[in-house]
Design a protein around this nucleic acid. Structure first.
Length: 483
RNA sequence: GGUACCUUGCCCGAGUGGUUAGGGACCGGUCUGCAAAACCGGGGACAGCGGUUCGAAUCUGCUAGGUACCUCCA
């Protein structure tokens, strides 16, 4: 399998360090607000990778962190922890805020059919480990203490290692930049970043450390928790492209400084979701939360969109391309997904007979080929659409399929559509069986009426069901319905 | 200002140096008591101008437009 590695800017053959085990770390959410469409992208992208690796026989340990400390607001907030700020405003305990948004995040992820990671570590639960990590960096000589805070010495590090190897930035450019950040005067260089930050008196989230009552720096948790759970070297680290610099660059520097060598083999970055060509993000204030999509409660949305439509929409584009959101694009995705869902249902009902007149061979290989090419989900989906056409031809009685081919087709659809792409295409659960039978009964009565050419009764049943919200379709075999 | 990336048909979105991506929309046809669905067919694209090549949308140069990062950000 080929994976695009941001480090080398090329697709590379994926070779796990300790096959069949694979270690994968993905930057999770900062839980101080509801998840928006942008958050769904890495979650779904790496969920698909997780699923694909697992289906390919790997034993994956998937770590996705929860950031609940450390990120600073911009200078106007005087270094106050984001979570603490929000907590004060709402008169809640910081951890109460964290828990509230974390619950909602989990709820959204479940709706999107994103599997829970193997480990979901909280930054706040790893303060001791982070302090130990800082000690290692200090001992190695790549950090310095200043006024109770500890900063990473980028210039010193750059003498011995390549700072900027991930983002392609060089230290001279960074040097030329002027920035006004809190604590600037405490730092040797403007580009040094905090490993430990002394808490201001009004700051309510803080922990004791050898240097001060304070909190860990922005980037430290990922270095610490990644190596804690996946080892000093592991396979994959994922996240959004916007985290490449400074977050991931700093992470590399911290880990190299503390351990003396690189940690991550494959860096993967998903691209952004845009809206009217602009990145959807907190800083622009142009984001739409997942909740708003699910309920349709946003002026830019023509209607509510199901979680599966959102998932499908995201998978219709390659993860390294930007995707431009619009209501029209989502509606197109919704219709496409309905087509696949219907084909999948028909596939279950299809009857095999004789030779195959439709070409269904090679679907498994084609899907695998696409996935192996840096997770090309749009191509997988296009193959499924091609396959849907074949299914429809047989369903329409205009073609036939052998029982062998039919079985294989069912297995491949289950594997790629459901297990790997994670699309929920299956219909109602068994508990709804009686209700389904009741609807079938009505429609069978209508069928009888039709045979008697009793159009009045026939149309009456269809119209009544339609008014309740059912969609009725006549077919060669009889009928189909859906809600 | 620095760095990187992008520009595909009505819309969304893949892709490769030479052979139909796919979806949505639209138009025509088949099927049907009607409707819906399904099926068949249809048209077309590769920002502009040069270069390399037998051949480029795909490689290269320039131009135009756009985006991202450089600050919290998925």
């Amino acid at each position: 399998m080929q994976i695009y590695n941001t480090l080398t800017r090329t697709k590379e053959e994926f070779r796990p360090l300790h096959a069949p085990n694979v270690g994968m770390y993905v930057c999770g959410p900062t839980v101080y607000g509801d998840a928006h469409l942008g958050h769904a992208r890495p979650a779904i992208t790496f969920d698909v990778l997780y699923r694909y690796l697992t289906e390919s026989g790997y034993k994956v340990r998937y770590v996705r962190n929860i950031t609940d400390v450390g990120h600073l607001e911009h200078d106007a907030d005087e270094g106050e922890d984001k979570i603490a700020k929000k907590a004060r405003l709402e008169q809640l305990e910081p951890m109460e805020v964290v828990q509230y948004y974390l619950n909602r995040y989990h709820h959204d992820m479940e709706a999107l059919n994103v599997l829970p990671p193997s480990i979901e570590p909280h930054a706040s639960g790893h303060i001791i480990e982070q302090i130990e990590f800082i000690k290692k960096i200090l001992a190695a000589g790549y950090a310095y203490e200043s006024e109770g805070s500890v900063y990473f010495d980028v210039a010193k590090y750059a003498q011995d290692f390549h700072y900027g190897k991930l983002s392609g930035r060089n230290i001279d450019e960074l040097y030329a930049e002027t920035r006004e950040l809190d604590g600037q005067q405490e730092k040797r260089h403007s580009y040094d970043f905090a490993l430990w930050k002394k808490a201001a008196p009004e700051h309510i989230m803080h922990w004791p450390s050898p240097w001060s009552e304070g909190f860990p720096g922005w980037h430290l948790e990922c270095s610490t928790m990644g190596t804690k759970y996946l080892g000093e070297e592991f396979d994959i680290h994922g996240g959004g492209m916007d985290l490449m610099f400074p977050h991931h660059e700093a992470e590399i520097a911290q880990s190299c400084a503390a351990l003396g060598h690189d940690t991550v083999h494959y860096w993967m970055h998903n691209n952004m979701i845009t809206i009217a060509g602009k990145k959807m993000g907190k800083s622009y204030g142009n984001f739409i939360t997942l909740e708003q999509f699910f309920t349709g409660s946003h002026p830019l949305l023509s209607k509510a969109f199901s979680p599966m439509t959102i998932r499908f929409f995201i998978l219709m584009a390659h993860y390294r391309s930007t995707v431009d959101f619009s209501s029209e694009a989502l509606e197109a995705a919704e219709k496409g997904l309905a087509r696949l869902t219907e084909a999948y249902e028909r596939l279950q009902k299809l009857k095999a007979g004789g030779e195959s007149s439709v070409d269904t061979k090679g679907l498994r290989e084609r899907c695998k080929e696409a996935m192996d090419d840096d997770l090309n989900t749009p191509i997988v989906i296009s193959h499924l659409f091609d396959s849907a056409r074949a299914i429809n031809i047989v369903f329409d009685g205009k073609g036939s399929i052998s029982s062998e081919d039919l079985e294989e087709l069912r297995r491949v659809w289950k594997l790629y559509a459901e297990d790997i792409l994670g699309l929920r295409l299956e219909q109602q659960s068994a508990s709804e069986e009686p209700y389904k039978k009741a609807v079938d009964l009505l429609l069978n009565m209508r069928l009888e009426a039709k045979q008697r050419k009793d159009w009045a009764t026939s149309d009456h049943i269809r119209q009544a069901l339609t008014e309740i919200g059912f969609t009725i379709k006549d077919t060669k075999e009889g009928f189909e319905w859906s809600l």
